[in-house]
Amino acid sequence: MSGIVCAIRGGPLSQPTIRKAIETAKSDQIPVHFLYVVNLDFLEHSEQARTQVIQQEMREMGEFICLKAQIEARREGVQADIFIREGNVTEEIIALSRELQAGVVVLGRPQTERVSNFLDLKRLEKFVHMLEDETDAKVIFPAEDQG
């Protein structure tokens, strides 16, 4: 295993994911690669002309969010680096995992209200299988009590 890919977005909901990635990295003695994906889909209906400048600002924000996670990891003695990518989140997770030959991918646990029914859980399961097939990595989530 050459490390853990941990895709984060920042904010309180990402904290359990970051913690899980750091804990796993610490116990397995492997590095963690924090990934932030710049996605400007929200500009689709308005300011497309501004995307070039905004992309740069969003990259800076992503770096900042990952830097915060990196500092936390280093405090725990875990080696951590930062990757900022642009585009679709799933595609970028797959691409980075393949690139780094990551053994583990840590994803944020979807909010309970979003997986409230059987159908959504099925969909999530399918997504995890797809990700594991595409990356050859094990996909893990933070424990329920962690978020």
Binding site: I8, R9, G10, G11, P12, L13, S14, V38, N39, F42, L43, H45, S46, E47, M58, M61, I65
Partner: peptide
Amino acid sequence: ASANMVTAGIAERAGYP
């Protein structure tokens, strides 16, 4: 307002929906 929407868009991408 469009300004509200883009602010929400960026805030969501920083983990603060």
